[in-house]
Design a protein around this nucleic acid. Sequence first.
DNA 1: TAAAAAAGTTAGCCATGACTAACAAATTAA
DNA 2: TTAATTTGTTAGTCATGGCTAACTTTTTTA
Lengths: 227, 227
Amino acid sequence: MTNKLNLNNLTKSEEDYLKALFQLLVEDNSVKVGNNQLAEYLKVSPASTNNMIKKLKTKNYVVSEKYGKLELTDEGSAIAVRLIRKHRLWETFLYNYLNFSWDEVHEVAEQLEHIKSYKLIDELDRFMDFPEKDPHGELIPTSKGEYKVVPKITLSSLEEGAICQLISVNDGSVNFLRFVSEIGLALSSEIKVLEVREFDKSIRIQFNDSIETVTRKFADNVFVKVL
Amino acid sequence: MTNKLNLNNLTKSEEDYLKALFQLLVEDNSVKVGNNQLAEYLKVSPASTNNMIKKLKTKNYVVSEKYGKLELTDEGSAIAVRLIRKHRLWETFLYNYLNFSWDEVHEVAEQLEHIKSYKLIDELDRFMDFPEKDPHGELIPTSKGEYKVVPKITLSSLEEGAICQLISVNDGSVNFLRFVSEIGLALSSEIKVLEVREFDKSIRIQFNDSIETVTRKFADNVFVKVL
DNA sequence: TAAAAAAGTTAGCCATGACTAACAAATTAA
DNA sequence: TTAATTTGTTAGTCATGGCTAACTTTTTTA
Ligand SMILES: [Mn+2]
Ligand SMILES: [Mn+2]
Ligand SMILES: [Mn+2]
Ligand SMILES: [Mn+2]
């Protein structure tokens, strides 16, 4: 009997650090993730991350050399994936059953993802009939820990004339999500890049019957599939 | 604008202490609740409760004199009632929608009750169509904080020959709840007290087509309405 | 390649919420 | 009504996870 079912005894903080590291490493597909980068992402001081990384290393969830880049062990990754699964399933539940809007789900899911119960999350999954994507278009890892990392193409990376479809959005900022909805963009929207302005990288896009100019920062948080 | 909607900034611990105190004061209807009693209930040391009570007093949730009995302010009670509402709504959700059994819901609800979001709990309430009772038969406080405290009659308090109906059970012990189910008792079961044995207070009861002898401790945790 | 900047580390501090051990007050029993 | 017991309080310790300030190492830039 392996310790498959150890109701992992990680604290909320430890879990958040592992998830953050996973997101920087895998989702943002970085070459190197450093201590200060992690600190900035988590909005804590570099001293705090340094401290926590030390602890996670002794627990064999993280590997790194002094002054070197941070990496996750398989076990560390698995924990992160489970958290992401929980986060996205809860977001889906809030959105589809409890009348939460796009921009409201993330904050509450950030809490709910730390509830410890395998049954809870697998039953929630079943209750919703095993959804594939969360309200922001992100793939939901399966109960077996299967997680496809889809390389993300940002709207900002496209050239003039490109036509694409909105696949997912970054869910971290309430204001950003509200703005996306306000201008009429949604998952699956078809977008045409009309113009890329060199001096400030803002882009002019067409979708539905609207034409809007959006900033580079905005376009960095919109992920698309080129058609 | 009052601070009605202050997403109360209490820690999980502070919340658990207030809820425990409320349960001892109101639900168990005690004349006096003391520091050690609270400590025992929460399974922490008297030093810990003493410490926490001090803090809750400075925040005006608790009132007490040195060496005196513990009491809750209106604000303290209101927080406790909100927690009980959340706890029971979650138990109901787990039981009715996620295939949790009677004895599994409490532990997970103990975590879920600390999720901070008014919308979450009110929408969950609506989603379930405003249930009145949780799976253990306990009344669920309303979103307005209305909470009827029904004086509890324990099965152990009945005399020989009494006929009653099972209204609710104490949900704190998994083993107890499992045993209740195993012998075939459930909410609304009609029970007849056949015999009360003086020397050990065990009682012989009849229900459905069964006859069982149960201990005083068991009967203390079964709440009934006399018919 | 040396100086400056950035990144990472360490020491030391704080708040929270546990604990034990020692002590004080209140209650109960002899 | 004194003595024993129970109840409550205080002091001091620990782990967790934050922080700032100072320092070291690495990387970049001049
Ligand atoms: Mn999210
Ligand atoms: Mn989180
Ligand atoms: Mn319960
Ligand atoms: Mn709790």
